[in-house]
């Protein structure tokens, strides 16, 4: 695997059993993501986008296939190792923001750093810097219910990138905000990608996200239907 490929998915299959019925959410997905990519997973509901993000995010295990993040095969990790991997190497941005309601914007953004036992002074420097970067300076002490949807999603982005993860997984990040806010969020993530080298992998239906993505992977019925950079990918020996 070349050095700049941080994620390698091979033949990822996920089958859910509901009683006697088996439902295949993913059917042998192959995907490689390079450091610094800004990639959108696109597809209709039920195409397997969220399932694939859950597998990549070490939240779930594939029924078959392998997922390697920074050289580590996820299915071989223990529960504790998966928790540490999520804490240290993966950032999550959810559709419904999913901030902890009893924590302030600052504390939400700081939470993962505190888990990592980053010294308080360093935490403060990084979190204050990030909140300023996402445009929330002065709102640090507000709780989620005192912030707009867009502001909450900015806090979620700050939380996701604070520990310098290898990969940020964003599941429909613009689905719950208005158009203007969605554009601002995309500006923010695009800038972080361009200036700070943060790697983003989105699942989305949103044409605004698809338009901005530098790579679009289309899923249908649990399979990769198209990959706009697939030709480039094949030209480079990533597998």
């Amino acid at each position: 695997m070349p050095d700049d490929v941080i994620l390698q998915v091979r033949g990822a299959t996920k089958i859910y059993r509901q009683g006697e019925v088996e439902v295949a959410a993913l059917r042998g997905v192959d995907l490689a993501v390079r450091r610094g990519e800004f990639t959108a997973l696109v597809g209709p509901s039920g195409s397997g986008k969220t399932t694939l993000l859950n597998l990549i995010g070490a939240l779930d295990r594939p029924t078959a296939g392998s997922i390697v993040l920074e050289g580590r095969e996820l299915s071989e990790l223990s529960k504790g190792e998966r928790s540490r991997l999520r804490r240290d190497r993966i950032g999550f941005v959810f559709q419904a923001y999913n901030l902890i309601p009893v924590l302030t914007a600052y504390e939400n953004a700081e939470m993962v750093l505190a888990l990592q036992k980053v010294p308080a002074a360093e935490r403060e420097r990084r979190v204050q810097g990030l909140l300023a970067e996402v445009g929330l300076a002065g709102l640090e002490d507000r709780r989620p219910d005192q912030l707009s949807g867009g502001q909450q999603q900015r806090v979620a982005i700050a939380r996701a990138v604070a520990p310098n993860p290898a990969l940020v997984l964003a599941d429909e990040p613009t689905a719950n905000v208005d158009s203007e806010t969605a554009e601002r969020l995309l500006d923010l993530m695009e800038r972080m990608n361009r200036e700070d080298g943060v790697t983003f992998l989105f699942s989305t239906h949103d044409p605004r996200v698809i338009r901005r993505a530098r790579r679009v992977v289309r899923l249908r019925d649990g399979r990769v239907e198209a990959d706009e950079t697939a030709v480039e990918e094949r030209d480079q020996p990533v597998a």
Binding site: G57, L59, K79, G80, S83, R84, R86, R87, D88, F92, F94, N98, I100, P101, M111, V112, L115, Q116, R159
Partner: peptide, 16 residues
């Protein structure tokens, strides 16, 4: 339930 799920998703251990 969802909140605890989020905590664990971002890296908290079940023990936390």
């Amino acid at each position: 339930t969802r909140e605890f799920g989020i905590m664990m998703a971002v890296g908290h251990r079940p023990a936390d």
